[in-house]
């Protein structure tokens, strides 16, 4: 699999590695997918990178590759900003080859990472018709998670037709941030758009939402989909090739 802009792949890994330290990559002719839960089984991530999004892609037989995302992140940090990236696994090999090429082809770096034997569990994620779908700048969402974490461990997300409100309370007191729906969309990237069938009020752990925000550099906009008694879906699109979707179980009355 070859990417002209290897930084896209580095951003994917940075977006996942804190939530899941290691994961099984499923490779097929259609592309690369990954599904993994965090160690406490509170959140789940689902990654799709379609073959047509790569500069070139070939997969002769389906493969499951157990990879340490922490190690891969370290290797990808050595990559230059404008480097292209090729990922290769040879038949019957117990390692993955990560090759980087500088833009003017005067530097070539190759790394081999040992594959891991991982127990992987695959959950079925149903198609959900969410009560609310919010789109907002991903930088804004990161900021809100950071700001709410000052006040408490949990954030209550409430939606109305007018907007969306995030609130948190704790020993210090409480705080809230309300975003109003953008009425005059000039720049789509900066817009706050709320599609609502029913109002929702759901509580989530800020710590996990903040981890999801590690994937924010992938896309200028984040999608939050919410329904009562259903895990939140937080989606970052990967330009032209797929998405990273995070699912987070809500906090419920004890």
């Amino acid at each position: 699999a070859r990417l002209l802009h290897g930084s896209i792949f580095a951003k994917v890994i940075e977006g996942l590695r804190e939530l899941v330290n290691e994961a099984t990559w499923e490779c097929s002719g259609n592309g690369i997918t990954l599904q993994a839960m965090d160690s406490s089984h509170v959140a789940l991530v689902s990654l799709v990178m379609r073959s047509e999004g790569f500069e070139s892609y070939r997969c002769d037989r389906n493969m499951s590759l157990g990879i340490s995302l922490v190690s891969m992140s370290k290797v990808l940090k050595t990559m230059g900003k404008d480097d292209s990236l090729t990922i290769r696994v040879n038949d019957d090999s117990d390692s993955i080859i990560i090759a980087m090429e500088s833009q003017n082809q005067d530097k070539f770096a190759d790394y081999e990472l040992r594959l891991m034997d991982l127990d992987s569990e695959h959950l079925g994620i149903p198609d959900t018709d969410y009560s609310c779908a919010i789109k907002m700048p991903s930088s804004e969402f990161s900021r809100i998670c950071r700001d709410m974490s000052i006040m408490g461990d949990s954030v209550l997300i409430c939606t109305t037709k007018e907007g969306v409100k995030f609130s948190a309370k704790g020993d210090l007191g409480q705080g809230s941030i309300r975003l109003v729906q953008t009425t005059n969309i000039e720049k789509e990237e900066e817009a706050v758009i709320i599609e609502m069938k029913e109002a929702v009020a759901l509580t989530f752990a800020v710590r996990y939402l903040s981890m999801f925000c590690k994937a924010a550099p992938l896309s200028p906009q984040v999608g939050l989909s919410l329904s009562e008694d259903t895990p939140l879906m937080c989606e970052f699109k990967i330009a032209e090739m797929g998405h990273v979707r995070f699912y987070l179980a809500p906090k419920i009355e004890d």
Binding site: V42, L123, G124, A205, P231, Y247, L248, A249, K251, D254
Partner: peptide, 14 residues
């Protein structure tokens, strides 16, 4: 009080 639910509770049966 609220407690953190498990993601498996929502997805594993589908």
């Amino acid at each position: 009080g609220k407690r953190q639910d498990n993601i498996r509770a929502y997805f594993e049966n589908f």
